[in-house]
Design a protein around this nucleic acid. Structure first.
Length: 276
DNA sequence: AATGGACACAACCGCAGAGAA
DNA sequence: GTTCTCTGCGGTTGTGTCCAT
């Protein structure tokens, strides 16, 4: 059974938002609050899909969104958190006051990755598992930055990737949903631990062998989760810093993080052995 | 001035978890 | 237990801008 589309796409506007649309959305949310995204566009008089409205609000219009250049402290924190958490952008964003996951993700992909690579650092790639215990090389499907702009090609490409993934059982950590409904750090730690266990049983392909500062890329997720849990570090957004909070909070997070690392992430010797 | 490639970032897409029906 | 809707996530794409030629 196919999934119903989030909304009827017919007659809906796509692409960049106009000032007028922004105003309509902002006014509506100020009056009625967030939520009910599906019905919101109609009520607010917008020709947009609810998903698009939500994204626009969350990433751009929401009060307290900090825009512009990332400070060196923020950069550093992102790199460190990424080394611990991987591409869990929402978690990382939760520790950076006023920054959105989308912004951090973009910044990582466009600036930080290059920066790290130019310094000879190869951030840990997404971890993959294989069914065979023997380590294998997974051929990569490379998608060009600007693929042919036709839907048939896109479909073919997706099918290709899907087939590829099925064949090689690419392990991509699931996104952990961060809502008011769930996601205590135990949930996160649990999910990380369990997935790591699976990885351990089935073997790991670890493409990262470059030197990484702070030794963090050598950490295994489960250990990191334990470290964070043991330190009482709740990575859930409930505990995240409020958007638009005082800048000194960033320093606080940073200090807290450094302290955490100094207490737990010594890693002079690899505590996990060399069998990763 | 025109052009084309690289880059940056906003926005879109598909997937999946959670809860309601 | 099943299906559906809402919501949130990460990955990917589209497009505007910059810059070198």
């Amino acid at each position: 059974m196919g999934r119903a589309p989030c909304c009827s796409k017919e007659g809906l506007k796509k692409g960049p938002w106009s000032t007028k649309e922004d105003l309509l959305l902002t006014n509506f949310i100020q009056q009625h609050g967030e939520g009910q995204w599906r019905s919101l566009p109609k009520k607010a008089g917008l020709l947009r899909c609810g998903k698009s409205c939500r994204l626009r609000w969350m990433n751009y219009l929401r009060p307290g969104i900090k825009r512009g250049n990332f400070s060196p402290e923020e950069e550093d924190l992102i790199v460190r958190l990424h080394s611990l958490l991987g591409n869990r952008w929402s978690l990382i964003a939760g520790r950076l006051p006023g920054r959105t996951d989308n912004e951090i993700k973009n910044y990582w992909n466009t600036h930080l990755l290059k920066k790290l690579k130019s310094s000879g650092i190869e951030p840990r790639p997404p971890r993959k598992i294989v069914t065979s215990k023997k380590k294998a090389t997974i051929p990569k499907i490379v998608t060009s930055k600007k693929p042919a702009n036709n839907s048939r090609n896109k479909k073919l490409q997706r099918k290709e990737i899907s087939d590829h993934n099925q064949r090689y059982k690419v392990y991509a950590p699931k996104a952990i949903r961060l809502s008011s409904r769930n996601n205590s750090v135990e949930d996160i730690a649990g999910s990380v631990s369990s997935s790591s266990g699976e990885v351990e049983n089935k073997g790991i392909i670890d493409g990262s062998s470059s030197f990484i500062p702070w030794n963090l890329y050598e950490l295994r997720d489960d250990f990191c989760a334990e470290v964070l849990t043991a330190a009482g570090d709740d990575l859930s957004p409930q505990c995240a810093l409020p958007v638009g909070s005082d800048d000194c909070l960033l320093d606080k997070v940073y200090d807290e993080y450094l302290q955490l690392l100094s207490e737990n992430c010594f890693l002079e010797d690899d505590p996990f052995g060399a069998n990763l």
